[in-house]
């Protein structure tokens, strides 16, 4: 049995079913991200695990203990909030010590644990400061230390990086992941940022309309999306209309291609095929099955990557190329060719 089990979780607010038959098994020490657009129910799932919402039906089991009926303060679960939620009247050290004090831990052990936690987050000298004297990133680090200090069974992160600027967000997400690995604490992370979810997680749960559309490793979710929603929500996608010509073959823009996997669709049927921008190559690539003429419509310079938008067979296609100092990006309006292979095509299923 897994360390954390969510089985058939349902949550309704009046007539509105926010979470529908949600199932998830999390192993001890695993880092799971709940990824999805606003209103998809990811935060509600997290809040049910935390004990802030009572499930309409279903159960939550942590380490063999059914906690569904337990109050939030009886679950021994640490939580980080988007708005930091540090207690403004307490110093950093007092904030970190709060959970230990509530538990009745002796002062000397408490002080030692606070010092250990502040070292862990890299703020050993900040114990005497008040939250308002810290930057956003420092406050969120303190919030992490506070959540970890009482040694919770599970750590819940409710979009903790959303309020931070881009640079701090990247460095803090690496720190959070390192600390999580070091402590081996089972963690559920809620985010709507796919980059965060893909870069931090052991597994990602992509949610839509209250259900888990796909649960899988980031590589799997990105490269083999289970549904059309997952394919379109995670990453950028070019969608082509195709026609099935055989069990493993299709036709894209009139050109036959061999698909990576067989499709369970009748011959002659139309289907949607998708391609990631990095799977479309600018120019004629050796071994490519399809080479199509294109007109460059837009160029976005993103540093290490250049994203090009080109009109191909009547639709606009996005493609990524690596930036090279000796190869300037193509000019808008230029005639070019793009090449692609059938094995990179993702068959979209509804």
């Amino acid at each position: 049995m897994s360390f954390l089990n969510l089985s058939h979780l349902e949550k309704s607010f009046g007539a509105n079913r926010v979470v529908k038959d949600f199932n998830l098994a999390v192993e001890k020490g695993e880092f799971i991200s709940l990824l999805g657009p606003s209103g998809c129910g990811k935060t509600t799932v997290l809040r049910m695990v935390a004990g802030f919402e009572v499930p309409t039906s279903g159960g939550i089991v942590i380490d063999g203990q059914d906690v569904t009926g337990l109050k939030a303060n009886q679950r021994n679960i640490g939580m980080m909030f988007q708005a930091y939620a540090l207690f403004p009247n307490l110093t950093v050290a007092e904030n970190v010590a709060f959970g230990l004090k509530v538990k009745g831990v002796a002062k000397d052990r408490r002080d030692a644990r606070v010092a250990e936690m502040l070292r862990l987050i890299g703020l050993p000298e900040m114990g005497g400061r008040y939250p308002f004297q810290l930057s956003g990133g420092q406050q969120q680090r303190v919030a992490l230390a506070r959540a970890l200090a009482p040694s919770p069974r599970v750590l819940l992160l409710d979009e903790p990086l959303s309020a931070l600027d881009a640079k701090v967000r990247v460095s803090l997400r690496n720190e959070i992941r390192e600390i999580q690995r070091e402590l081996g604490i089972t963690t559920i992370f809620v985010t709507h940022d796919q980059e965060e979810a893909l870069s931090m997680s052991d597994r990602v749960v992509v949610m839509n309309g209250g259900i888990a559309e796909q649960v899988g490793a980031p590589f799997e979710v990105y490269n083999r999306p289970a549904t059309r929603f997952v394919a379109t929500f995670v990453g950028t996608l070019n969608i082509f209309d195709g026609k099935v010509t055989g069990p493993e073959t299709a036709e894209v823009a009139g050109v036959p291609v061999r698909l990576a996997e067989p499709v369970a669709v009748a011959q002659g049927a139309r289907l949607s095929l998708a391609l990631r921008p990095e799977a479309v190559h600018l120019g004629r690539k050796e071994g490519a099955e399809v080479v199509l003429p294109a007109v460059i419509q837009g160029v976005e310079f993103l540093g290490s990557i250049i994203r090009v938008r080109a009109e191909v067979a009547g639709s606009v296609v996005a493609l990524d190329t690596f930036n090279r100092s000796d190869a300037p990006p193509p000019a808008i309006g230029t005639q070019a060719e793009v090449s692609l292979s059938g094995r990179d095509l993702i068959v979209l299923q509804d």
Binding site: A72, A85, L156
Partner: peptide
Amino acid sequence: VLTEAAQSLGA
């Protein structure tokens, strides 16, 4: 949020 933070810490 402060209430929930305190609750999650056992208060």
